[in-house]
Design a protein around this nucleic acid. Sequence first.
DNA 1: TCTGGGGTCCTAGGACCC
DNA 2: TCTGGGGTCCTAGGACCC
Length: 340
Amino acid sequence: VTRWVLHMDLDQFIAAVEVLRHPELRGRPVVVGGDGDPAKRGVVSTASYEARAFGVHSGLALRTARRRCPDAVFLPVDAGAYEAVSAEVMATLAGFDAVLEVAGWDEAFLAADTDDPEALARRIQDRIRVVTSLECTVGIGENKLQAKLAAGFGKPAGIFRLTHESWSTVLGDRPTDALWGVGTKTARRLAALGIHTVADLAGTDPRHLAAHLGPVTGPWLVQTARGLSPAPVDAAPYVPRSHGQEITFQHDLTDWEQVRNEVTRLARRVATGIASEQRPARRVVVKVRYAPFITQTHGHPLSAATSDATAIERAALAALAQFRPGRPVRLLGVRAEFTR
DNA sequence: TCTGGGGTCCTAGGACCC
DNA sequence: TCTGGGGTCCTAGGACCC
């Protein structure tokens, strides 16, 4: 038997959960994001396939989404509902004879020893459909990178196998940002070096790229383009490194006293959040995004690791004191970092 | 594309030490 | 005295992902 890695990816997860709760929306364009008001500042979390046909996708401004698809149903994000369904899906996956790594609300990796990974993939799809009425895509690979990318090719509701053997045929001619971990910025930097496709990147000297993109990132990019990823599927429970809260204001704040008040409120919410973690914080970082979209951060160490609300509040205000007041503020954030 | 909110990891530069 | 080299830690910013 062979060890295979499977990547389970729920299709249009957030929109699908909303359609389950509101069956009359099935077949209609559904857009979930912000507080459900497309006139406000906010972005699309997930759009149903019907809405995607109008060019609406995750990350798009809600106002733009409404312009592209005025007939869409706009719904607010209801994290609690998605968490509950996600937990059901992951519990279902835990019933399979495989190493399970949860990779977010709507994704998981499974490592299993089998001679027929497609059959296992079908059983996973059937089981999830029976238990939750949700559709998913399963990617199959020899490592997590291959399985993850394979799922993208299998959508929606499909099964796709990507291996060392098929890697360069499937991906070689594609642009570098087809890879997991390569976005538009990195793709542009690579293009400036004459590297346009996955095959170009796979054939690049890792040392050459290290000189341009850093000692870790450079060689990592080349390995990724070759379909290699050493990280095994890891069933260890997720241990957060930080916890934060941030808020974008519908109207920019111009009064610094109000900025201080909002930072205090966020710090208290962060303190409440980490109290349940049972892990003390080492540092507090405050983020300020000035209008139009200029972001700065400043941190303040906690003299002793603590989860005490007053200490976190004081550290947040000390961090805020390093900013220069004046320009209108669009967003504020407070994040507490745990000891490693 | 006028750009959320939750995160993670890497980079580069400065401080500091031997 | 006009200035090494290496290691580690901290910080702010950037890129990416869901």
